[in-house]
Computed example of a mutant assay.
Amino acid sequence: MNNIADQLNAAYQNLTENCLELGRDLTSICLIAVSKTKPAAAIAEAYQAGQRQFGENYPQELQSKADELATLQDLQWHFIGPLQSNKTRLVAGHASWVHSIDRLKIAERLAAQRPPELGKLKILLQVNISNEASKAGISAAELDELALAVSTLPQLELKGLMAIPAPGDSERAFAAMQQLSANLQQKYPGAIELSMGMSDDWPLALKYGATMIRLGTAIFGARTYARNE
């Protein structure tokens, strides 16, 4: 069994070394521990080791874990998976961040369903940067239109972009995302976040300006997919 505290410590040490090498400010990088399919006990163990940012892909799993771990202060949930309109309320009521917005309808539902006492829900727009037919996300050409529409919605705060490149396309895709992010920030100065890079390619993502990296297996070990949500 993985020792989660040791794995977290190794991940942060590796992140520190990469930031030093690249001249990046470590405090500007958010490491998200992707906890999908892992039990709440594993999240609690990571929390006790100092981790506060966790990523989930399934709305019902997010709700269940958020309710079970509601007493843990400062824990923030990042919803990073595809989101269907009939599940938006679960995410609006529990997440602090949503990384995967690629339709205005979903953003509108999140805005309408976000409890005011939770403050604004932070939103990233997902770009299908490798133009994969099987992958969610908007095209680069659609970005301006969706960003404008989302930026006007109440209870939402446009914070940046997210992408998951196709295998073998990481460097080109990360470079393209870095440029899209720079362009977006010219119109929306607060949209500074760039969520890209996972356990196998995050150092390259850092090179191209990632501010959020999503690590699952590097912290929690291999996943099991025993449910269909």
Score class of each variant (00 low, 15 high):
Gln113Met: 08
Pro115Gly: 02
Glu171Leu: 11
Met162Pro: 04
Ile213Arg: 03
Leu90Phe: 10
Pro165Ser: 03
Gln48Cys: 06
Ile101Tyr: 13
Thr211Arg: 00
Asn9His: 14
Ser199Asp: 06
Gln84Lys: 10
Leu75Asp: 05
Thr16Lys: 07
Val34Trp: 02
Thr71His: 15
Ile129Tyr: 14
Ile192Gln: 13
Tyr208Val: 04
Asn128Ile: 03
Pro167Phe: 04
Glu108Trp: 01
Thr152Phe: 05
Ile80Gln: 04
Gly221Lys: 08
Ile213Cys: 09
Gly93Val: 08
Ile29Asp: 05
Asn3Ser: 13
Ala182His: 09
Arg109Trp: 04
Leu143Gln: 05
Pro82Lys: 14
Glu132Gly: 12
Lys120Gly: 12
Ala136Trp: 01
His99Pro: 13
Leu124Phe: 11
Ile164Asp: 02
Pro115Lys: 08
Ala147Met: 01
Trp202Val: 06
Ala149Gln: 13
Lys159Ile: 07
Pro167Leu: 09
Gly190Asp: 15
Lys207Pro: 02
Leu69Ala: 13
Asn14Glu: 05
Lys65Arg: 02
Glu117Leu: 11
Asn131Phe: 06
Gln53Ser: 12
Ser151Ala: 14
Ser85Met: 10
Lys159Trp: 02
Leu20Trp: 00
Leu158Asn: 06
Tyr225His: 14
Ser134Pro: 06
Cys19Met: 12
Leu215Phe: 09
Arg52Thr: 10
Gly55Arg: 09
Leu143Arg: 05
Gln48Arg: 13
Arg172Phe: 10
Thr37Trp: 01
His99Leu: 02
Glu17Leu: 14
Leu110Phe: 03
Thr152Gly: 02
Phe220Lys: 10
Leu8Arg: 11
Leu118Tyr: 02
Gln186Val: 01
Asp102Ser: 12
Asn128Gln: 13
Leu180Val: 00
Gly55Val: 07
Arg114Leu: 00
Ser195Thr: 10
Arg109Pro: 02
Ala44His: 10
Ala5Gln: 11
Gly81Val: 05
Asp144Tyr: 03
Arg52Ile: 11
Lys65Asn: 00
Leu22Val: 05
Arg103Asp: 11
Lys65Ser: 00
Gln60Asp: 15
Ile43Gly: 12
Arg109Tyr: 07
Ala5Asp: 03
Pro59Ala: 15
Leu62His: 03
Lys38Leu: 00
Ile29Gln: 05
Gln7Asp: 14
Ala111Ser: 15
Ala147Gly: 03
Phe54His: 07
Ala182Asn: 10
Tyr225Leu: 09
Phe174Asp: 02
Phe79Asn: 02
Val34Ala: 14
Leu184Thr: 07
Leu156Val: 14
Gln126Cys: 07
Leu83Ile: 09
Ala33Ile: 13
Phe54Trp: 12
Gln178Val: 01
Leu180Asp: 00
His94Val: 02
Asp169Val: 08
Asp201Ser: 06
Arg52Pro: 01
Ala133Trp: 06
Glu193Phe: 07
Pro59Gly: 06
His94Leu: 00
Ala5Asn: 03
Leu104Tyr: 15
Leu72Phe: 08
Ala205His: 08
Gly209Phe: 07
Ala218Glu: 09
Arg214Ser: 12
Gln51Trp: 07
Arg103Trp: 08
Lys187Gln: 15
Ala147Arg: 01
Ser64Met: 08
Ser28Tyr: 00
Ile106His: 09
Ala140Ile: 12
Ile192Asn: 11
Lys36Asp: 11
Tyr58Phe: 15
